[in-house]
Design a protein around this nucleic acid. Sequence first.
DNA 1: TTGTACGCGTTATCAG
DNA 2: CTGATAACGCGTACAA
Lengths: 348, 348
Amino acid sequence: MKKDKVTIYDISKKLNISAATVSRALNNNPKISEKTRALVAKTATEMNYKQNRLAQALKNGRTNNVGVIVPYINRSFFSSVIRGIEEELTPQGYHIIICQSHEEAENEIEQLNALLNTQIDGIFMSVSKTTQNTDHIKKAMEEQTPVVFFDRKIDVEGVSSVVLDDFKAGFMATEHLIDQGCKKIAHLSGDINLEIYKNRYEGYKADLQKYDIEYKDELVINTSSKIESGMQAIDELWKLKDKPDAIFSAGDYAALGAIQELKQRGIKIPEEVCVVGFSNEPFTKYMELPITSVDQTPLMMGKIAAQVFLEQVKGDQALSIEKKVVLSPELFIRDSSSRKILNLSDGV
Amino acid sequence: MKKDKVTIYDISKKLNISAATVSRALNNNPKISEKTRALVAKTATEMNYKQNRLAQALKNGRTNNVGVIVPYINRSFFSSVIRGIEEELTPQGYHIIICQSHEEAENEIEQLNALLNTQIDGIFMSVSKTTQNTDHIKKAMEEQTPVVFFDRKIDVEGVSSVVLDDFKAGFMATEHLIDQGCKKIAHLSGDINLEIYKNRYEGYKADLQKYDIEYKDELVINTSSKIESGMQAIDELWKLKDKPDAIFSAGDYAALGAIQELKQRGIKIPEEVCVVGFSNEPFTKYMELPITSVDQTPLMMGKIAAQVFLEQVKGDQALSIEKKVVLSPELFIRDSSSRKILNLSDGV
DNA sequence: TTGTACGCGTTATCAG
DNA sequence: CTGATAACGCGTACAA
């Protein structure tokens, strides 16, 4: 049995004033005498009054809760984005509810509906790999619940998004490899169904073109974000007559697998082959051979997504227009691709 | 302006029955005719009705929301525990609200109070390093809001907890080192103010005693969970006349720093010095020299914490007694401490 | 089996 | 400046 909570009625009775007055005093309503406000405030703390946000939410339709849906919360990237969102929104009085889709569209839909039921004020999400249909997103929009995509988005009319410029990232990574003197650059791509992987791949292709390097299909291997997958890729690539002298992987785990397999074969990194990964996973910088990787600035991504949301809800409803933010990637150059002596900026 | 949501009144009007009947039908109240129940269910979905959990919560005093307070959500350990909690509680209809304390007692208190205001059904937390006072916890208890500590706890009457057997972990790690033939085992300890670090230290001492190895104060170095801290520790230890032949670190980052510094000095691992870390951070297994480490089974910890909570709320209030669960650590033996050829179980 | 009426804790409106 | 009252959406004794 919950201990009885004190309500504004309790304090109104004690002070012989109306509950309405108490409410107004507590909310710093301008048309209330300074005297009563002070009195109410004082007795409120005395009686250990705490405003019931539930009743408040029921009344004004806003819960000050937002939902976040990600594939898995314990992935370094996602948990960092969530941290960014949290740090931006908590000072504004919001609470963050987290859900996992486990990379299943079905779960994603279920979680989203559950969130809508809770009368959430907004939803942040990174779509699952299996999500194709956008009906659930449209449903949220119909209910006027703002949705903000981050990292992985789907095009839906009126939905804002904050993503990385994956094209540029692919371009930068490839350019860096060319800059190291590499000519035959292989690409370990991810699931092309996801926009992010497609863009990284396109960036890679575009940069090759810029430097008049012939694009070869055989140098592009489809991988999953697993270490073994990177190993298998090397296995395949090294069957070629014309072997690559650089690897640009769309994921750090595949890059790591590639490195392990290359070492296994006695191939020197970066002298014979340069390797660049993607995501700047924490482990990349801790290796004996630290791995060059593209950083997705997850904290920043979370903070900006939060800001986009705040603009959306604070602005007049008429102003709440779709906003597309594209963040610039940062390349952290480390030993796995540093043939030149410049070992650039890289905090521990 | 939110689009008008359909309520039970809308559907009652449409069907010319009372809202009460609709409510009952929706809640599968036994005393309702199968015919009306089906009819209500059908039109409910037709009208796209969604129950307002807010109103429901206000009514029955339960929100089906729980709060989780951790120092930082993007630490591998914490995000994994949260994942465990989420996966256990979501199927039961709960939502998880996350907060960060940033290792500051002040924030922790603020977040906890904010959660209590939202009428949360329970709170999971790992206390911050600076938390000494327990008034805020007691306050939650007074309001009959169950609190479950995980990993880092503080003793408070009536509060359940799920923690690792850190003593055993320290003991196991040390024993493993002795088993490898090490005689002079140094310990990089953490902040002794936190119970967990104290227990690891005590476990270390106890195991030395078991094997009649003299405990030496000079072999215990206080470190923070930073790489540099581990390096400095080696710096200090190697000033000793009698240098250690093993390092048991209470954290993986300090262990990594120690390894880097040892390599720098040309000391062979594990031949000359064996190293064991703590937490089984993802990077430990990806290193060229994979690091032996104690796993804290975070996913399991989260799931069990969730179960303890569920028992607490489901059981009759009289039964909700304090429950203390202690989990057994798992030692993942890897190359940094494997002198013998047995390279035990270790999934990628 | 179903309907009526009230309350959960707040806030907004309308008087005064 | 303050008080009375309705309403947010739902669940539930009580009555029918």
